[in-house]
Amino acid sequence: MAYSERIMDEAIAWHLGLGEAGSEEWRTFVAWLEADPAHQDAYDDLVMADADAAEALASVPAPIRRKPNIIQATPRVWIKRSGWGGGMLAAAAAAWLAILPLATPSSELYAVSTQPGMQHLLTLADGTKVRLNGDTQVTLDHKNPRYASVDRGEAMFEVVHHADHPFEVKVNGMTLRDVGTTFNVRRDAGMFVVAVAEGSVLFQPDREAVSLTPGMALAIQDGTGKVELRRIQATAIGSWSQGRLEYRNIPLADVAGDVARSTGAKVRVTDPMAHQPFTGTLRTDRSADEVVRSFAQLVDGQLRRDGPGWVISPKSAGAS
């Protein structure tokens, strides 16, 4: 019953992959099994070991795990320079999370950023949780744990409320003040949107002081400062952190932007179609290619490769 480590690794790769496998992959798996009795032994041993390991795990309590402070435990610290040099770019591609210290005398700011397709959960000293979506940067302050700014991308805040020390989020020079809250902040090209899932948020507390309650979203255009209030489903807010993207009448171009952020796959929707409203749910807890394919299917578009990315266009455009 001897088999090599290579075969063992192949069996493990199959075992981990079969959960999501399509029919073609299953047929390839059958061919792999048939190719060598050692493959069959290795796979059989593995699935039996897998079941036994589950029993072994169930029969002992989970060890207590010292939860490291994510920020300090992350060894990749980059000093921000005027731009990314070639070497820095390669280094940044290898690291998905970059932390940039931006110290000034009065505060100890640092930036945390994610690459497209990645998510990251930060727990601040006061217990407030900040979930970063992909391609996102927030700036935090070591000296003031009740401060955050969303510089780029999208973040979901679950704020631990202190009546005498409110949590403030800065976006593009504007202030959001929590009143015991879960809310989502999105920084897109040319605008930002804040949406409240629980509790409430004060927008510009020292000026307009607009109070936002669950299910309300406020969109502010960058240049003009034009403000638009929208109603959205409170349960859909921040659904990206659960591997879903939920929409009601949202232009396809915006949906494509979210897909890119959540999966890392560059998707573009061509022009007449980009403005078409989309209502539905996209699951993102699978590979980027699968998400893009099912997105194209849902909107009945034609999908094609475009360099490293994808383009979705109306089906009729392809037919002559």
């Binding site: 063992m8 690794d9 069996a11 075992h15 981990l16």
Partner: peptide, 11 residues
């Protein structure tokens, strides 16, 4: 890595 460890025992 975890599967490698448990499979070794099994094999």
């Amino acid at each position: 890595r975890a599967y490698q460890a448990v499979q070794k025992i099994k094999s």
